[in-house]
Structures are given as structure tokens and as C-alpha cells.
Design a binder for these strands. Structure first.
Lengths: 152, 152
DNA sequence: TAATATTATGAAAAATTCATGCAGATTGAT
DNA sequence: ATCAATCTGCATGAATTTTTCATAATATTA
């Protein structure tokens, strides 16, 4: 496993927050030259610590004002039902994230809807009637905050 | 609300997947010139559709092989206890995401640990003894897949 | 300790990419 | 038909990313 020093952690923390800043600006903020900062970033990419750079969308600005987390317990637990379920879930466009988990639920979904009524009226039913689904539990997102994680 | 055409949606889909590609390369893939593609991206930023660009870390490569979702039900529901809880949660470095939700739980946390034993031994206790915490339910992440969402 | 790798650094330059100005094409309204 | 608005591609300057190179720390080994 790659060894990180304080500068590496500071770089990761800064870019997780905002990956649009240049290596020059970030380096200046940390007391590094532009190439030094850039090379550290490349090293972190090559080590696999950096998995990629992603655009963060504002779902509300896209007209999807509601985000809901769904905990799903399958009724039948065979491998076949897992595959059936995953394939069917993929066909629902409102599904943003599919998480296979261990615990009281088998899957967790992050879905978006235009509003609560839209979620209750169409999306909820659509999920409940997926193949193999037993229990479904919904949690509506009120606010979300990302933390730097163990790097800080 | 801003109107998106097929090209806008294609651009968003591509950049959510990989925000490191240049406007020139992406434009070429979509049959657009570099300035045309770049201007569309800027327009989406100004419309607020693009919330930002973030680095995506590989927690496993950082030595945190286990991700756990925690559903938390507070025992006392006053505003004071919410603030107390949030402040205390912020002090736990392993907490990656704090979500305030509506439903059977009041909060959902995404936390990382070196391994299951580490989670059970230290992190779980730490969360259960946060101020105001009633029930805690854990789900261990097995696999996670992001979908394009309603844009696709 | 001295010699030798190893690694990280900054300055400078090359290669890309970003960002803007401009002129032409398309669309829709008056 | 004319005008305004919007989008496009081309050309271009500004900024950033990568590479090259010489040097300074840091550790390894003799």
C-alpha cells in the first residue's frame, strides 16, 4: 500500500472537495511548485488511490427535487433472483446508485423523483414490483453533507 | 428550469462518468467542435446543473477495505439533539457522508473501516454512544454501481 | 564516514487545453 | 422579408498540463 504524507493528504482533501482547481493554484496554496504538486497527483493516480474525476450534478436543478433511499429485502435469496433483480433495476432510469449490501437488507437504491407525489405514485410501485422483492423501506433525503473522511 | 437537448444530456452523462476528458475530445466523440462543446459545459455550469467536479477516491486502496451504512434512530427528537448529534458525528474521522433523512431513521451515515473487525470493535461503539442515539442498524457494502440516472 | 542510489524538488520549455472574438448558418417571431 | 436570438466552426491568445533537466535532500550500503 502506498505511503501518504501530509501533503498528499492535503492534496486529496482539496481535490475531493473541488477537482477543478489547477495543480498550480493548489500547489501555491500548499507551498509547492506547480510541477511538484502535479507529480504528486499523478503518483496518486498511478497508485490507484484516485479512482477518477466525476461531475457532480444538482438533481434539483434538473427537476428532480426529491432523493429517496430504498432498503430492499429480497423474498427469495438464490443467485438467480439476485441477477434478475439487478437486471430489472437497471431498467429504471430514476435509479442513481445500486448497492449490494449485507444486513437486514439485500440492496440499497438511491433514486430521484420530481416530487414526493411522483415518488409515491409511480416509482415506489415500480420498485416494489421488481422480481424477487420482499420488503421495501424508504428514507427521504433532507440534507447531505460530505466529510473528508479518514484523510483529515 | 433550463432546457436540455440530447447533446447536453450526452455531455453530462460522459462527464459524470469521467470528468477528466477534455472538451475537445468529448466534442469530437459527439460530433461537436471544441468551443461548441466547451460552451455547452459552461452553460450547464452557469445554470447550476453542474454542482462541481470531485475526485473519486478508492477507499480500499487507502487501506479502508470496508464500507458500512448506518441507519440511526435518535432517542430524543428535539432540535437540540439534532445539533448535538451532528456536531459529535463530525468529530469521527471515519464518517464519509452524513445524511439527514425522513422515515424509520433520522440519519444515515456512510463510514469506512480497515476491516470488519475494526468496524465492530471501535467504530460501531463510537457511533452507538453518540449523543441522542437510539437504534443503530448496519449494512455492509458488498458492491456499488452508479447509473446515469434520469438523463439516460 | 564516504559513496551510491533513490527520490523529490524547482526552473524552463513543449504540448494541450481552455476561453474568447468573430463571421456565417439556422430558427422563430413580427 | 427582416430582425433578433441562438448555435455553430474557425482562428487565436491565455492558461494549464506534461516533459525535460539539473539540483538538493534522504536513505542505503560499503
Amino acid at each position: 500500500m502506498i505511503a501518504l504524507d501530509d501533503l498528499d493528504r492535503a492534496i486529496l482533501r482539496a481535490l475531493v472537495e473541488d477537482a477543478s482547481q489547477s495543480a498550480g493554484a493548489l500547489g501555491r496554496a500548499l507551498g509547492l511548485s506547480q510541477p511538484a504538486c502535479w507529480r504528486r497527483i499523478r503518483r496518486l493516480e498511478e497508485a490507484g488511490v484516485i479512482a477518477g474525476r466525476r461531475l457532480d450534478l444538482d438533481q434539483a436543478a434538473l427537476g428532480f427535487g426529491v432523493t429517496v433511499f430504498l432498503g430492499i429485502k429480497l423474498a427469495t435469496r438464490g443467485r438467480v433472483s439476485l441477477e434478475d433483480f439487478e437486471r430489472a433495476v437497471t431498467a429504471i432510469p430514476e435509479v442513481q446508485v445500486v448497492q449490494h449490501v449485507l444486513g437486514r437488507f439485500d440492496y440499497r437504491l438511491r433514486v430521484t423523483a420530481r416530487d414526493i407525489a411522483d415518488f409515491e405514485r409511480v416509482l415506489r410501485r415500480r420498485v416494489m414490483t421488481l422480481p424477487g422483492v420482499g420488503q421495501v423501506e424508504a428514507n427521504v433525503l433532507l440534507s447531505e453533507e460530505r466529510r473528508p473522511g479518514p484523510l483529515g
